[in-house]
């Protein structure tokens, strides 16, 4: 149905307007703000200061570099574990067994839970007076110890496990969708040829899943890089800024100290990193070959 009418433009107009006003214009204005001193609390000091924010960020701000390093660590650990566990979970619920539908609904359900609610649930589990570790210690399993979130040695693994609870279903859902598209006769042929379970997995399943794995990993890496809700509410970036990611740093500049100028400069740094990811994504998703 090739056409030269105005119809498609009218149909996408609302989307275009919303994107222009709430996505494109804000990005441009971040660039402008990053060159200014701009705080809500001391508006009389606001003004153009050139690249001063960037100089401060790159050369004086220890926390900026620290947050970048932690962001990288967070993304690598979280996405890596989610991928492995998600793949295993997808393979399990792809098998045929009694109660499979119910099992799928249950193991996928944390996907729908918000970051703040996840925090609430796990704070109840981790709390040092009536939490799960105290309960286990009562039964003689392990040792109650102290608050896992207050202890610098356990705060990272505790945060990682919390986000895994909510994040693994994402990979499991996506990979399950792809698993279901593998033609059954491939497996029958493999079984006729006497291929074992492992051999079948390596030669048929994994190659078929490759594209889905690459793209979901990239999407998830971006998502975990941007993930603020959970860390903001669970640790607040602490103790001692140990769990501060770059977007969390930006959010704290915006929400807590209302330092819009410097926060915008930090945002620009984030955009550069995200730009790299998006180019990679578009290349790998073979965007060009579709049109």
């Amino acid at each position: 149905m090739k056409t030269r009418t105005w119809a498609p433009y009218a149909l996408i107009a609302p989307t275009l307007v919303l994107m222009a006003v709430f996505l494109v214009y804000p990005i441009a204005s971040v660039g402008w703000f990053s060159l200014r001193h701009h705080t809500v609390t001391q508006p009389w000091k606001n003004g153009f200061i050139g690249f001063e924010n960037f100089r401060r960020m790159l050369f004086e701000d220890q926390l900026f570099w620290q947050s970048l390093v932690f962001s990288a660590k967070w993304v690598v650990v979280e996405v890596g574990l989610q991928l492995v566990l998600g793949l295993v979970l997808a393979l399990i619920v792809n098998e045929t067994f009694v109660g499979r539908g119910l099992a799928r609904s249950l193991v996928f359900s944390p996907w729908a839970v918000s970051g703040v609610l996840t925090t609430g649930i796990w704070i109840l589990l981790y709390n040092p007076s009536t939490g799960i570790f105290q309960q286990l210690a009562q039964w003689g399993i392990g040792d109650a110890g102290t608050s896992v979130l207050g202890n610098p040695e356990t705060v990272f693994p505790a945060t990682v496990v919390t986000e895994l609870w909510r994040g693994v279903p994402f990979f499991a859902i996506l990979l399950l969708a792809d698993l279901q598209s593998i033609p059954k006769d491939l497996y029958e042929a493999a079984s006729v040829d006497g291929a074992g379970r492992w051999r079948t997995f390596v030669s048929i399943t994994l190659p078929h899943l490759r594209d889905a794995i690459v793209l979901s990993t990239l999407l998830r890496a971006v998502w975990e890089f941007n993930n603020v809700d959970l860390i903001y509410t669970l640790t607040g970036g602490g103790p001692a800024n140990q769990t501060t990611t770059l977007p969390l740093y930006v959010a704290r500049k915006a929400v807590d100290s209302h330092d819009f100028g410097y926060g915008s400069a930090l945002t620009m740094a984030g955009f550069v990193i995200l730009l790299f990811f998006s180019i990679l994504y578009l290349r790998l998703s073979k965007f060009g070959s579709r049109a």
């Binding site: 498609p8 996408i12 709430f22 941007n226 977007p247 819009f260 998006s278």
Partner: peptide
């Protein structure tokens, strides 16, 4: 429909998946 600018529109839609809400707090 096939329309002029369709590819650019689709590209823009895809790119928005990389724009984090947290980073847009200030301008918004």
């Amino acid at each position: 429909f096939k329309f002029r600018g369709q590819r650019v529109f689709l590209l823009a839609l895809l790119c928005t998946q990389f724009i984090p809400g947290a980073m847009m707090l200030i301008p918004l």
